[in-house]
């Protein structure tokens, strides 16, 4: 079953139960490798991610800086797919597995301005 379907089902189950629930990721942490950072950059731009993650994720704004993040890929994937109430919208309905991997690859590729 694709991750997004699992996510949607579990999110719906969590909402039905009236509780917050994160996606229990069925993939191992290294399963998020293989994304295309260039495509991820386009997805990042086209979905308005820079509204909060300023300077294409290089610095904190409304949301945290993403460059040199210490977060695990599982954390990044969960946050991207489920969002965080009051801070970040859920993109689970917008991105498929490959696009999610692309965005994570882009996050890991962010370098200081002028060095990319």
């Amino acid at each position: 079953m694709q991750l997004r379907l699992v996510a949607a089902a579990l999110l719906a189950a969590g909402l039905y139960a009236g509780i917050s629930i994160l996606i229990p990721l069925s993939r191992a942490d290294d399963a998020y490798s293989g994304g295309d950072p260039k495509r991820g950059e386009e997805i990042f731009s086209n979905n308005g991610c820079g509204w909060c993650h300023e300077g294409m994720g290089r610095q904190a704004g409304r949301g945290p800086a993403l460059m040199d993040t210490k977060r695990t890929d599982i954390f990044l994937a969960t946050r991207i797919m489920n969002g965080k109430a009051g801070s970040m919208p859920a993109f689970g309905g917008n991105l498929d597995d490959q696009q999610l991997n692309d965005v994570i690859a882009f996050i890991h590729s962010i370098k200081p301005e002028g060095t990319q």
């Binding site: 731009s45 086209n46 979905n47 308005g48 820079g50 300023e54 300077g55 309905g93 917008n94």
Partner: peptide
């Protein structure tokens, strides 16, 4: 800011349509 060309967004459940990255 850096103004960026973006793909026209016309589909349902779109997120923010912003043709730029920026920092305050």
């Amino acid at each position: 800011l850096t103004v960026q060309k973006t793909t026209p967004v016309t589909e349902p459940q779109a997120q923010l349509n912003i043709a730029a990255q920026f920092k305050i």
